[in-house]
Amino acid sequence: MNIFRLAGDMTHLLSILVLLLKIYATKSCSGVSRKTQELYAIVFLARYLDLFTDFISVYNTFMKIVFIASSLAIVWCIRVHPMVKRSYDKDLDTFRHYLLVAASFLLALFLHEKFTFLEIFWAFSIYLEAVAILPQLVLLQRSGNVDNLTGQYVFFLGAYRGLYILNWIYRYLTEPRFTRWIACVSGVVQTALYADFFYYYFISWKNNSKLKLPA
């Protein structure tokens, strides 16, 4: 474990806590893409299939459970909870996210570290996570003004994988046989998808103005 990866995991956890706060405090999921939340639930379920078979550390197991439980809880909230469900922007959240699932799985069938069930699902989860934010970014562009908590949620979610890139550089430099090309390339693509969001987020922070993504 290095400082970059710990900071990345904490930033990821923070993004989830901010989203939970937003939904709990405002009893609303306006501006939140249910599809992105569903994709993230699939990402965690596919990536942590080894939850009960490979024990890495208490921290690792604990965080995996937190990520799986929180992502399922958020999807449940948006789909089932009557107050929250009513505020879901159904006609704005129209990204065909099942195409992202299909494309990621197809890519994982061809590009993986080993042709085993766990490795293919792990690669699938890596590719899917890289594009999982797309429905959310599209929704933000369509919904015009973005409330602070939703903006912070997306910012921390994008920042965590950026910190992971620093972690991979650090591990590549310090560990002789460390290579994680699939995660690394995917992580760079994932972070790059946030580039314009980060730009407008920085502008709104600098001018102390409302975050607004151009349509």
């Binding site: 990821h12 080894d50 890495i56 766990l118 792990w122 972690n167 046989r177 994680r180 995660a183």
Partner: peptide, 10 residues
Amino acid sequence: NDDGDVKDEL
């Protein structure tokens, strides 16, 4: 798993 590339990251 036993071989080198244990998935130790989240």
